[in-house]
Design a protein around this nucleic acid. Structure first.
Lengths: 192, 192
DNA sequence: TACACAAACGGAGTCGGACTCACATTAGGG
DNA sequence: CCCTAATGTGAGTCCGACTCCGTTTGTGTA
């Protein structure tokens, strides 16, 4: 309900403090930071936290939306400067990098890609659309197969995002991205 | 500590009742059945449940171990009757079928593939070994690329296992399996 | 068959963490 | 400056995993 009324100054301040505190916690190591801890870091009481965010999960979603937005903004430029299959390749690597931001981001991406939690409905739809856009461009160019949809590819990426905390996981993640990319090119009309 | 002493008759009975009740719950829809509910279904008290299983997770692991064992037993026969890349293809489809057993099984497979929870260390290692075996056979035959390891492929499968409850997910899952399979063949010395 | 006792059982109670609610405080329009 | 609706507060509730210890029972032995 942020649109109904401009939100009082102190309320906005607290809301932002909460988001900042949550970001610190979630994007860092403390993926399952307690709400109490987040409120404390933000310098407010629990009640205030719950005035601004329906549930703990709603707060989590809000924190990660910005990251997802940024990620999903990339394809526009990528498609301007690269062939569709190359754009897709770069986007997948970008995804790996984002997952690398922190354990928290990886967990969030996992939730977005791998579950059907309604909390991430928006983020999931946005990511799926982004992938669809890249896939469509590649299909039109004949360099990517045309029988895989954005939502399907999104699911396939779950494995990447879920990785963390293991030695050398990033190399592994890149390899899986490459594997999927190759799978998408394999058998395309103009496969290279 | 089942090996130290043969376990009293009533204890064995209760243990089995608990496992049966848990299997009913987990392999059905009630993935997050409460321990109390499971104990009730088994006709024992909570204390008894905890005598047999360290934690709720330990019970979960026990329930799914059998499924994983069964799944991992398959490649032996598959490799006897099919070329390695075909054996791999079939194994991936088998994985999809197992994930289809129930929401619970899908969740378990997800945990096995996508997290690094120590609860599933055994299952994870077993699955990774199984995949390594298939990949090695394919690499020797020249029909699969040789730069992807079992653990890596296992991670990549996370996306498949995490799928559930969405209309037509199984078709989607098969497609992702095919995608990975194609990615593994793409660029192999004797790619078909 | 009876006995003894270790093993197993039961379930009320503890504990930890998400979430609520009734009251106190305060921003900011008039 | 005052009024009031918006906001903040934090002790308390709720819920579910897990613990503890008194009670019951299976079973090896005489």
């Amino acid at each position: 309900m942020p649109s109904s009324r401009p939100l009082r100054a102190d309320a906005r301040r607290n809301r932002e403090a909460l988001l900042a505190a949550a970001r610190d916690a979630f994007l860092g190591d403390d993926t399952d930071a307690h709400v109490e801890e987040i409120a404390r870091r933000a310098g407010v009481a629990i009640g205030t936290l719950y005035r601004h965010f329906e549930t703990r999960e709603a707060l989590v979603e809000e924190v990660y939306r910005k990251e997802v937005d940024e990620l999903c903004a990339a394809p526009g430029e990528l498609l301007d400067h690269h062939a569709p299959d190359e754009a897709l390749r770069r986007f997948l690597l970008l995804l790996v990098d984002h997952a690398a931001v922190g354990k928290g981001m990886a967990v969030a991406l996992e939730s977005i890609t791998a579950t059907d939690s309604p909390v991430f409905d928006n983020a999931r739809a946005q990511m799926a659309n982004t992938l669809t856009r890249l896939l469509d461009a590649g299909a039109r160019a004949g360099t990517l197969r045309d029988d895989v949809t954005g939502p399907t590819l999104l699911r396939a990426l779950g494995g990447i995002c879920a990785m963390r905390a293991t030695e050398g996981w990033q190399a592994e993640a890149r390899q899986i991205a490459a594997l999927l990319h190759d799978g998408l090119r394999f058998g395309a009309p103009r496969a290279t």
